[in-house]
Design a protein around this nucleic acid. Structure first.
Lengths: 217, 217
DNA sequence: GCAGTTCGTTACCATCGGTAATACCCAGTC
DNA sequence: GACTGGGTATTACCGATGGTAACGAACTGC
């Protein structure tokens, strides 16, 4: 209860909403994605029904939280995408930005992508943040955003629109899956992962030679 | 209660387990991933504690179910991967096999990948299949499997092992994300999606020309 | 001073995952 | 044929959660 009723009154509903989101963020980062509505309300110094008045249901709160973080991530990615360098460097910068983000804030990442896993191992029963949809919205937003960039920058012939969207979602998925695996196993440096992925995007799979004795992949 | 006690007695525990899994499968396909343990037990003609005796907890049941489907999918993919054709055709066949699988059994797919979404819109409260981990195990298995194939078939120089794993997970992620988006929006024929993705893998992103007026992606 | 409205809280419900205590049935034994 | 023992399924229950209705307190306009 850090705020008096008077202070509450002075803050607009939008600002209050932000405060609640920040409180929710703290709890989620501390307790993992299984944080209960009660816990979040307590952290914010209020009680459950107020949360429900602001966000409708738990999914609404999650969605608001996810949008916040997704917006921030998208801003970073856009900066990398817009840097005045050549295409390969740009792709590498974008990959690196994404990977750096999930490396620097793994808690946030896990919350967005794997809502049912407990961040701390002893959080008791994993009831899970049974949100309407999980990582899909984030990935879809990123995919659409990348598709837009691709479509407006590259000349891809008559099917430009369609190709750009396929590639946008495909590349985002590649980045996501590789990043998820890398974050869990840390098999190499970030820089090297970036290079490997860019190589893949640059057609090195098609160019690689067959191994002796087999017909090749 | 379609089975008498006598019949129960005759079936071995392994067979019983299969029966339970099939019942669970039916319920999950009918009610969506939010199916409750009670509902599954009822479908199987038994009660909850028996399910817990067999699968430990809800995560165990989900995992068993997921493993079943993942095994089947992996078998199909391996067949496509092993076909005696050239590399491009093989990649396309694999992509197509995966996409055909998710196209033919979208319910299964949604259960594996988006466990919290209700398949039927009126399933009441979506408590969700708050499993330990969601789609990650499936994707990780596919990624590792593909990595193995890549590593043993392609000659990738000194970092072969590492590169193969990065690419394995990356390609699986690309396929997954693009497939997910495609399944939802159906923007084109499957065949075309396959071609687009294979093109991406074949370096067409790097080769594409800049659009007039900009520095290109 | 008083009525109405807004905001917050307490108390509660339904449901779920998960488990202990209970009744049950069958095999072997006297 | 009655009785006991071991494994099995059932009932009844617990704790926690998401979500909501009924209640109460404070501010506002008159």
């Amino acid at each position: 209860m850090g705020t008096t009723r008077q202070e509450d009154r002075t803050s607009s509903t939008a600002q209050r909403r932000r405060e609640l989101l920040e409180a929710a963020d703290r709890v989620v980062l501390r307790e993992g994605p299984g944080a209960s509505m009660n816990a979040i309300a307590a952290e914010a110094g209020i009680t459950k029904p107020i949360l429900y008045r602001h966000f409708g249901d738990k999914g609404g709160l999650y969605r608001a939280l996810a949008v916040r973080h997704t917006d921030a991530l998208l801003a970073s990615l856009r900066a990398a995408l817009d840097a005045p360098r050549d295409r390969r460097e740009r792709v590498e910068a974008t990959l690196d930005t994404y990977l750096a983000a999930i490396e620097d804030h793994p808690q946030v990442y896990r919350f967005l992508m794997h809502p049912a896993e407990n961040s701390d191992g002893a959080a008791g029963n994993d009831r899970g943040f049974d949100v309407g949809q999980h990582s899909a919205p984030l990935l879809r937003r990123l995919g659409e955003e990348l598709a837009k960039v691709i479509a407006e920058r590259l000349d891809l012939g008559p099917e430009s629109e369609e190709l750009a969207r396929v590639w946008g979602h495909g590349i985002v998925g590649m980045m996501h899956a590789a990043g998820d695996w890398w974050l869990r196993e840390r098999p190499c440096e970030r820089k090297q992962l970036v290079t490997h992925l860019a190589d893949l995007l640059w057609g090195r799979l098609a160019a690689a030679g067959d191994r002796v004795g087999g017909p090749g992949f």
